[in-house]
């Protein structure tokens, strides 16, 4: 009896937490359904009166949202595969290195994890300018060539480390190249980590607000987050419109997260963050 009461309390806490953390999302979507021009609510409104979807087509009339979406999609479609590839091979390489180098690479990656974005803003601009990438979408894709985030490399490293060494040693004796071993044997075994990195890097590039602010100036290259900022400047108080735009940018990451969350939150490679090797 007492045990049952404890579990009821735990589930109660879980439900309350769920409601609190879903409220921001709920407010984005319900506020986007409110009719433009209605007087603002004077008491808390859990569901708008006479909800409408008209705000969604309207933001596409106000701003070239289709172009912003296309730019964001180009960035994500290019950057995510490059990120996953670079991080995966780097993680595999690290897992195959001898002890001394593995340790050095590991420490370097953990230090890199602590390097804040602002410290590279200024000079990344110069380097991107020398590369001729300023004011192109490549400026937004660029981080992919450094695996996006050292965390992604570490996640892959920890997963590859868990594969028993005998599995590829046999293949090595048969004369298989490292590429073949990575592609045919190791890569399929770390699929949950690949999914995690796909989700995390998708969110990273899709949401990136700072890079386009710093490195992209031509209006036809703006991405969705900048579109949101423009819409806010055009209609600073038109909340239904702003929330409709916020919903448009949130929906893809939300769907991706919901579809892939099972393997994402169950992946324990993060658990190895503090492992010494």
């Amino acid at each position: 009896m007492k045990r049952k009461a404890i579990w009821a309390l735990r589930h109660g806490a879980g439900v309350i937490i769920t409601i609190i953390f879903l409220l921001p999302l709920y407010w984005i979507f319900t506020a986007s359904l409110r009719q433009v021009g209605l007087p603002p609510p004077t008491s808390i409104e859990w569901w708008p009166q006479s909800p409408t979807l008209d705000n969604y087509p309207f933001i596409f009339d106000l701003l070239p949202m289709t172009r912003y979406i296309r730019n964001s999609l180009i960035v994500v479609a290019t950057a995510v595969p490059i990120t996953v590839f670079v991080a995966s091979i780097a993680g595999f390489g690290m897992s195959q290195e001898e002890d001394l180098w593995r340790r050095r690479l590991l420490i370097t990656s953990v230090i890199l994890l602590m390097v804040p974005g602002a410290s590279v803003w200024l000079f990344r601009f110069q380097i991107l300018r020398w590369l001729g990438w300023i004011d192109t979408l490549w400026a937004l894709i660029a981080p992919a060539f450094a695996a996006g985030n050292p965390l992604f490399v570490l996640l892959f490293f920890w997963s590859y480390r868990r594969i028993p060494a005998e599995i590829h040693e046999a293949a090595r004796l048969d004369g298989a190249s490292a590429w073949l071993i990575w592609w045919k044997m190791a890569r399929p075994l770390v699929r949950p980590t690949t999914v995690t990195v796909i989700v995390l890097s998708f969110v990273m590039y899709w949401s990136d607000f700072v890079s386009p602010v710093l490195y992209v100036f031509r209006t036809e290259l703006y991405t969705l987050p900048i579109g949101l900022q423009l819409l806010k400047q055009l209609n600073p108080t038109n909340w239904p419109l702003l929330m409709a735009a916020a919903a448009v940018i949130t929906l893809p990451v939300l769907l991706l997260f919901i579809f892939l969350q099972r393997s994402f939150l169950s992946d324990l490679s993060i658990a190895n963050l503090l492992d010494q090797n």
Binding site: T18, F21, L22, W206, S207, L228, M243, Q261, R262
Partner: peptide, 30 residues
């Protein structure tokens, strides 16, 4: 598992949308 997923959801909301949302939540009048 569902409760845990819910806790993670605000973290994946793109920061520009997240900022706009809170601008509205904190509106002093409505």
């Amino acid at each position: 598992g569902l409760y845990r997923a819910a806790v993670y959801i605000p973290t994946v909301i793109p920061e520009a949308a997240y900022a706009l949302l809170w601008l509205w939540i904190f509106n002093p009048v409505y």
